[in-house]
Simulated scan of single mutants.
Amino acid sequence: MSGVFGQRTLQRRVPALLAAAFLLLLVMSAVAPALFTSADPLQTDVAAALLQPSRHHPFGTDQAGRDVFSRVLYGSRYSLVIGFGATAIALAIGLAVGAAAASMRRFGDGVLSRAIEIVMAFPEFLLALIVIAIIGPGESSLLIAVAIAVMPAYARVARVQTLVVRRAGYIEAARTLGVARTSTLLRHIIPNTLGPLLAMATMGVGTAIAAGAGLSFLGLGPKPPTPEWGLILSEGRNFLATAWWIAVFPGLVITATVIATSLLGRHLQFVSAGRRP
């Protein structure tokens, strides 16, 4: 019987392991793309324009003769920086805001909670567009816009988790012993709220990457000829009938990245909740 349960547990972990392997490969391609291709993502060759996928060009070439495979590999660097960077910023700010709201008295908590709910009423992509409209387009603006757009969700979860942890017995014991509120918050409450937030952040990386690619597709991110996934998609949309590979392959990579982060994040949610994955 234990063997059957062990086999089922292993089968349930396989998707998470495959997702982790894919993300590790993606990170390696972002850190050292030269390990996977020798082609220059910016090198143009008009004579080799719009070549179909082949052994020499696994993802074909674009309208300028640039190797699409190398552009997708080098583009992972920009997309992962946006995904992980925006998620880290949103997690840090959201944790601070949520913990502060839960630690305030009823009036302060109510004001911050209503503010979070008002911001969350806007779709994340629309909120990112509003932020970029205010601060202007660009790579750094893209990072800030995506971080601000997804931050309220982390703040709400951080507030709920902080309220739960505050009712724990060891927190009450710390108060009884006269431990300062700030010390209790930093040493006990915040560390014990990180588990669900980190699982949420893992899934949020894929969402941030998709949002960043969408904004770049609209021309609000890096400028040509930067190899960035959303920008590659934008350049390839006019060639779907004659050179489908320019847009399809980066689109598939974006989709696979979002699915992988979702699978891994869901697995971490089970683990943080103390359940069998």
Rank of each mutant, 00 (worst) to 15 (best):
Q11E: 03
E124R: 15
A243K: 11
Q7M: 08
L177H: 07
R181P: 13
V157Q: 11
A153Y: 14
T37Y: 10
L215K: 06
G65C: 06
G136S: 05
P152C: 10
N192D: 13
W245A: 10
A32Q: 11
I93M: 14
L91D: 03
A180P: 06
R181A: 15
S103W: 14
Q161F: 01
A201W: 09
G214D: 08
V111R: 02
P152R: 02
L127F: 15
P250R: 14
L95I: 14
A19R: 08
L24Q: 01
L197V: 02
K223C: 00
G236N: 13
P222L: 05
L218V: 09
E228D: 04
G195E: 09
A39T: 01
V165Q: 09
Q43F: 11
R275W: 13
Q52D: 12
L185D: 08
L10Y: 09
L177F: 14
L73E: 07
V46D: 00
L127S: 08
V119K: 06
T9C: 08
P137L: 06
A147H: 09
P191C: 04
L198I: 14
F84L: 15
A168W: 03
H188N: 11
A145N: 00
V253Q: 03
F84W: 01
A47Q: 13
S234T: 04
E235G: 12
V4I: 15
A243E: 06
S234R: 11
R156T: 07
V97W: 10
A92K: 04
I82F: 06
A34Y: 13
G94T: 09
T87A: 10
P196Q: 10
F5G: 10
M104G: 07
L25V: 12
T44N: 07
A88M: 09
V179T: 14
L18Q: 08
A241T: 13
L263M: 13
D67A: 12
A241K: 14
G6Y: 02
I82Q: 01
A210H: 01
A168F: 06
A173H: 04
V157R: 00
R156W: 13
A256H: 00
L185Q: 10
G110S: 14
G195M: 05
L50N: 15
P53Q: 10
M1N: 05
V253F: 15
A256R: 00
P222A: 11
A100V: 12
A96R: 03
L127H: 08
T184F: 02
L198R: 00
S103K: 08
H267V: 00
V258T: 02
P225G: 06
D109L: 00
L163V: 00
V111D: 03
V253T: 13
I144L: 10
L218S: 07
W229P: 04
T61N: 02
G85K: 02
